[in-house]
Design a protein around this nucleic acid. Structure first.
Lengths: 186, 186
DNA sequence: CCAACCATGTAAGCGGTTACATGATTGG
DNA sequence: CCAATCATGTAACCGCTTACATGGTTGG
């Protein structure tokens, strides 16, 4: 579980309210880590209780309920400690792989449409990533920070490319099998 | 949630006890869907209550507690229905991406070792997949079933290859940044 | 003034993880 | 006989998802 550390990182980039974090987790960070506002508020509460972050509610802007959190030294250190311990790669749980396996046992199930959908989806996502790349990382020289952020994006790009290539192959295979089953040795 | 459907598929391939399913989910199916024996037993209980599967405990082999489940027509149909509805690709939640982002903000964190670890891990996994490929899918012609199973494996292979290529790139980048930070303009 | 958005929260339920517990079977 | 493995379960906890609820702020 590393949502708190994702939040710490995001807060270090910019002190924010829970609401702002929630919106940011639908965009940039959300590309590789999703979180709803409920998760975020709860986690912010815990982190505040733990002394990792602090809010400036009545402090400097008492006119609204908005609570802007900032990272304390303890939070900074917690993030450092967490980064130092090894973590395993994310496990994939792909529904589609189960469906393909089911197709092998009780097919045909008409999975072509599903694979087409995913092909389009990954193609769109790749285009989105490439647009970000052109917009944010095409100038030289890149700062240290931008180089690292670019690295993250490139991981996403490589994975989308792999998914697209596989989708194409899967589609060809499914169509070949489908046409064989459809007519065949009657 | 598709654990029940993964179990249905596995049971269609071969009627089994919960224990046998648990072991299979550590191997072949486990490559893209993990499940512990507790999850499996609970889910089997629910599916039996729902009339998707049935056990032959006192039926033909009353000598042991072993319950071998088989899929009923209702279960077969439930699997078919589930396969027909669209499902989104798995969301990735990569700790390492957060760590890289943290590295950008409060680095250096010494992530080289972490990336090296993952490089080795993905390389090993790829080798494992390729061994399976050579053992099970190198003969021609492949049956319809084997063609589909091969397709699943090839998805895993492509993703591992992408991860390996990215790891190499990330390692080069991190070392370059590290050496610059280490000496630099002192 | 009203709609849209900002902003924060509670509550219920489910899936997944870990720990604990029990007993039967099998092979050395 | 004893250890390893087979085989099935209960219990507690935690994170995530969804639904519901509340009230402030801002702009047309």
């Amino acid at each position: 579980m590393s949502l708190p550390h994702a939040l710490l990182t995001s807060l270090l980039e910019k002190s924010s309210s829970g609401y702002e974090l929630a919106r940011r987790f639908e965009r940039s960070i959300g590309y590789f880590w999703k979180a709803t506002h409920q998760q975020i508020y709860r986690e912010l509460g815990r982190m505040e209780a733990q002394g990792w972050i602090a809010a400036n509610s009545a402090d400097e802007a008492p006119q609204s309920r908005k609570k802007v959190y900032r990272v304390l030294d303890a939070g900074r250190q917690a993030l450092r400690d967490w980064a130092a311990e090894p973590s395993d790669p994310a496990e994939l749980r792909e529904d589609l792989m189960i469906k393909l396996r089911a197709e092998a046992v009780i097919g045909p199930l008409g999975l072509e449409h599903e694979v087409e959908r995913r092909h389009a989806l990954h193609r769109d996502r790749l285009a989105e990533y490439q647009a970000i790349e052109a917009r944010d990382f095409s100038h030289r020289p890149l700062t240290r920070e931008d180089t690292l952020r670019h690295l993250i994006l490139k991981c996403g790009i490589r994975l989308e490319e792999a998914q697209i290539a596989w989708s194409v192959e899967a589609l060809v295979t499914l169509r070949r099998l489908g046409s064989v089953t459809g007519r065949g040795a009657t």
